[in-house]
Structure formats: C-alpha cells, structure tokens
Design a protein around this nucleic acid. Structure first.
Length: 570
RNA sequence: GCGGGUGUAGCUCAAUGGCAGAGCGCUAGCCUUCCAAGCUAGCUGUUGUGGGUUCGACUCCCAUCACCCGCUCCA
C-alpha cells in the first residue's frame, strides 16, 4: 500500500471501490445525493462495527492499565442526540459555533472576522529609519484607512520563521527571501505588530501584519483593508454561520422550541456526570465512554467521509483530580496512539501534532491531535483524533448554567492529606474539587476512512488489480468458502462447512463461476482467507486455504479450518 | 457560501444538433480440478434534475443538484 501513488486518483479509486463493492454509498443516491451525508452499505457497516467494537472493548470492557499500574474505572453511556438547548450555551457551542465571517467582494475569499490577517505593501527605501512612520500602500483606499507603519526595529528574528511557516502567506506572496523583519505600528491599530519584509517572486517587497482582525474590526468593516488586496471597503459585513444543525421538537415550530443536534457526544457525558457518580461506584479518576452520531453544519463537506455533516464519534471523558491531569493527559496520549497502531495502521503514516496556543479551543489547556497521512493530504497529514486537556471547563460551565453542584468529594485524597498532616482547612478545601477532564475524541467514520485508505493496495499482477489488506480482525468478511468446481459433491461439502462456520464469524459461500473469479472478488473486499473444497477433500478431508496477501495456499484438515481462522482474528 | 472543473448502464468510456453504443460487470445455464478462461441466453439508461432554443438536444442556452480542486471551516 505504501507503493500506491498518493495522488487524488488513488482517492477516487477508493471512493469508486467503496461504492462498487457496497462499503459506502452517497446518501440519497437515487435523488442525486445530499451533500455531506453518506450511507454505509452491507460491507461498510460490518467494517465500521468491527472498528467500533474494538474501541469499545479496548476502552470500556478492558481498559488499559493506568500509569502507576492501577485499574482504570471505565463505564459506558449512550446519551440522547438532542439535549436541552442550554447544554450548548454552557458548552460554548452556541457562541463558538457562530463564527462571524466576512467575504471579500472582489477576490471572493472568505475569512473569519476575528482571524483576519492583512498583508500590506511597503516599498522599502534606503531612507527608512527606525522610529519613523511610513504609509503602507494600498491600491485605492479611503485616506483614513491607510495604516502608517512605524519602524521600531529591524533585523532577523523568530517571527520570520513563524510567518514563513504560514502556508497561505507563503503561497500568496511567493516568498523567496526574508530580507528583515521589523516591529512596526499602524495608525489604526495597536503599536506592536510583527511585520516582515520579504522579497517575493512577484518582485515586490511586502510588509505582513498579523492578526489585525480585532483591532481593525473595531474601526468598522468598511474601513478594514482586505487581507489580500489591502483595499478598504471590499469586505462585507460580518455574518454568522451557525455550525450546529437545529430542529424543533414538539408540535409547534417556534424559536422557543429550538434544539440542536449534538455537534459532539462529549456533552452528554458531562450532563450525566452527577448521575454516574451517584448511581455507580466509580471513583475519581474514572472515564465515561460513548460512541454515537454527531452533526455539524460544515461549510464545506469534503474528501469523501473525512468531513461530513453527520458523522460518528468515539469519545471518552476521563475525570481526574486537577493535580493529576497532566499525568493522565500524557497517559491517554500514549494509549490512544497504541490503539490506532492496533488497527494495523502503518506507523509512519501516523503522527502527533500539538496544538499551538492560539489554536487551542476555548476550553482546552492542551490538545494534541493524532494525524494520519491521507491520500488527499499527502505529504501532509490530516486529523484523526484529538486528545484534549479540558481542565474543569465543562463541569464548571454546566454547574453554573444548571445551578447543580457538579463537584466531587475525594475521600482518598482527604485521607492522604490527613496522613501528610495537612491542616483541617486545607483538607476541606482540597478534597472537594471539580474534576479535570482529559478527552480522547476520535472519529469512527474517520477510522473507517483510514482503514480503507490503509488497506487499499494496487497489485497489477492479480486479476482484480487491487485488494484490500485489512487486518483480519477488521475485515468485513473473514472467510470465503468455495467448492473448486460445482460438481462431484463438492458444493454440498462446502455448504456443510459454511453452515458450521457461519455461526462463528462472517463467511461467504460461493459456487458460481471459476475459482479465480471468486478469489478476485474476495480480494476486492478484503477477505483475508478462502477455503477451497477439492478432490482431496472428497477423498481425505484435506482443504486448501488461500491467503489474501501472499496468495499462497496451504493444506489442512477440514476440521481445523475454524481454528485456523479464529487464531488469525486475534 | 465563493471561484474553477466534472456529470451518458453497477464500473471505464464512446456517440458532427439526426435511431444511445462498446468493453468490463451482473444474472441463468453449460463447461471447468486453483487465481476475473470459454460457450449460450439474458440484465442495466427518463444521458444528474428541471426548464428553454430547435422540425429534432447527450450535444447549444438558463437554472438547480451532486462530486472533484482551491478558499473557509473542522472530529
């Protein structure tokens, strides 16, 4: 699979194969499809359920042993997709998912208003001096919207590499060389922008001003220069794009009934924190895991099932004492990577990526992504799972909004503090707290995509031209059972074997057409093993097992087939 | 949502404005002792959808939907 050229055509082949063999269909296909939604076909649902069950087993039924050798308490949950609307006010989604956007009417680019970055043109000249101000040029802006830049310092610095690392800027400017960077101020904004003086492929030299959004929006969008052209007046009024899908439970469609389809499964866990603590015997630290559908009104669903409006998540919220949060963060980071590797994903296609400070969500103290090198991101990586240190944000928010106490009394900590000779005051204060949360949140539907990409293997030497190299445990069908030819009692014998094994794992029984064709079909859907009943079987119960990856065949007794396959499903 | 591209059978693709086709596939039968063999018979289309121009539209025009690429967003 590493040999497959990682270009868009490969992705198209994967999408085509997924549809042709019944893994994934466009939703509402006969009506022309509906953007951002996909249906999982007969094989797709088997694959998805296999991954889902593996996660549930790994996280809930048999969770990993903790960093200090302790047993980790873990329970499951399946909360409603629609929660009380206040949930999403408390979580920050109503505000955070209403990002104001502005469009550049000329270039048709769209930007988040609070993320606006502008690029101005500044023709450098030898006369420029530190401490003096110069107007940065813009094509035809209103006079009062021309910022003046004050040169505060010059010389190379850290900002240069940071800005050069900004893909969009690099591409836009065609930056060749960084000539110098300066600290400058602009007349409309704060006096501390980092700017950069570069030589570009266009032969111009530019000044780049970061994060002008906040400051310039304060002066009105009509005076805000467009990020790319620096023209004022090109931007539209900021408009909100709600990224949550809504619905109106109850007989009357009224704003007061408005509810949201959950954009993440996590909040259902926080809402049940108190219930779980009260009704089960879990003690902090413990985790609550949930698998289910989530919905986001994505602006642009793209890249097959990578970004869809309805998707499935596998999330776990791990509640721990604030003092231990970092320890557990590191622990889950490691465990989650192990889990992805257990799917049979090639290690070199996985990586961690820490979020920068300015990239962190409003709630998070630290977040790391596990990323995968998808064919459509290659050589770059795309998100697969986020592991976030959410602090006490969620429980605190829900405590405030619901007026329900969501803190936790830690009896063990109380005892420990007593032993350490802490004062009664300190004991009282520290043993009752709002737990911190470590959240590994992964996309089940993304895992399906990863396994499809990972398994997709071109092989011109075999009749199918392609096969899916799933780890046997995750293959939708485990075993093909074929009579070599449809005569001499072979079909009957093969059918009897099928009847025996179908109760143990997913088997497919096929009599039709040539044996080669049947093998080819199994290759295409990633069936790891095929067993063939031939003349030897009829005379001495010896069958042939054919391996999908090597295409090699071995002979074993018919009575050992079940055991042979089961051994390889572990 | 914006810009560009694409849309014909399950798949890959043909068809000057003039009868919608081929290969693969799929189904049934025959044949067949290990990798999509062969023979026979069959299956599949409101040419993405809806309008318009025309005697006549897969073909030209408009709208719309979906997909791909870029922007934006993002598990």
């Amino acid at each position: 699979m590493a040999d497959a050229p990682a270009t868009p055509p490969v992705m198209e082949q994967i999408v085509a194969l997924a549809k042709r063999k019944g893994f994934i269909y466009p939703a509402s296909d006969i009506y022309g499809g509906i953007r951002g939604f996909w249906d999982y076909g007969p094989l797709g649902v088997l694959l998805k359920n296999n991954i889902r069950d593996h996660w549930w087993n790994w996280m809930v039924e048999c969770p990993p042993i903790g960093p200090d050798g302790e047993i980790v308490d873990m329970v499951g949950l399946d909360s409603a997709i629609i929660q009380h609307p206040k949930t999403w006010e408390a979580s920050g989604h109503v505000a955070g998912f209403n990002d104001p956007m502005v469009d550049d009417k000329e270039t048709k680019e769209r930007f988040r208003a609070d993320h606006l970055q502008a690029i101005f043109f500044l023709e450098p000249s030898p006369e420029m001096e530190i401490g003096k101000s110069y107007p940065v040029s813009a094509d035809a802006p209103a006079a009062d919207s021309i910022p003046h830049a004050t040169v505060i310092a010059s010389g190379p610095g850290e900002a240069a590499s940071e800005i050069i690392a900004n893909k969009a800027v690099r591409k836009l400017l065609g930056i060749k060389n960084v000539l110098s960077n300066m600290m400058v101020g602009a007349s409309l904004g704060a006096p501390d922008y980092v700017t950069l003086w570069v030589e570009s492929s266009r032969g111009n030299r530019y000044v780049y001003i970061r994060n002008i959004g906040q400051q310039f929006l304060a002066h009105g969008y009509e005076k805000t220069p467009s990020p790319y052209t620096a023209k004022a007046g090109a931007l539209t009024e900021p408009r909100a794009f709600n990224l949550m899908l809504d619905t109106y439970p109850g007989p009357i469609r009224d704003e007061s009934n408005k509810a949201y389809l959950r954009p993440e499964t996590a909040q259902g866990i926080f809402l049940n924190f108190k219930n779980i603590v009260d009704t089960t015997r879990v003690k902090v630290p413990f985790g609550v895991a949930q698998i289910g559908k989530s919905f986001r009104n994505e602006v642009t669903p793209r890249n097959f099932i990578f970004r869809s409006r309805e998707f499935e998540q596998m999330e776990m919220e791990f509640f721990c004492p604030p003092d231990d949060a970092l320890k557990w963060y590191e622990f889950w980071k490691g465990e989650r990577m192990k889990w992805w590797l257990s799917l049979g994903v090639e290690p070199s296609r996985l990586r961690f990526r820490d979020h920068d400070a300015d990239e962190l969500s409003h709630y998070s103290k630290a977040t790391v992504d596990i990323e995968y090198r998808y064919p459509f991101t290659d050589p770059d990586y795309g998100e697969l799972e986020g592991i976030a240190h959410r602090g006490s944000f969620d429980l605190t928010q829900h405590q405030e909004h619901s007026k329900q106490k969501l803190d936790y009394f830690d009896q063990e900590l109380q005892l420990k503090l007593k032993e350490q000779g802490a004062t009664p005051e300190e004991i009282k204060q520290r043993s009752r707290y709002i737990p911190n949360v470590i959240e590994p949140a992964s996309g089940l539907t993304r895992a399906v995509l990863v396994l499809l990409c990972e398994a997709f293997t071109l092989d011109a030497s075999r009749p199918s031209g392609v096969y899916l190299k799933f780890k046997p445990k995750f293959a939708p069908v485990k075993l093909g059972i074929f009579p070599l030819v449809a005569k001499d009692g072979m079909p009957e014998k093969a059918r009897a074997l099928y009847m025996e094994l179908r109760t143990q794992f997913a088997c497919e029984f096929d009599v039709k057409q040539s044996i080669g064709k049947r093998y080819a079909r199994m290759d295409e859907i990633g069936t790891p093993f095929c067993v063939t009943i031939d003349g030897d079987t009829m005379s001495s119960d010896i069958v042939t097992i054919r391996d999908r990856d090597t295409q090699e065949q071995i002979k074993i007794n018919i009575s050992q087939v079940g055991e042979y396959v089961r051994e390889r499903l572990k």
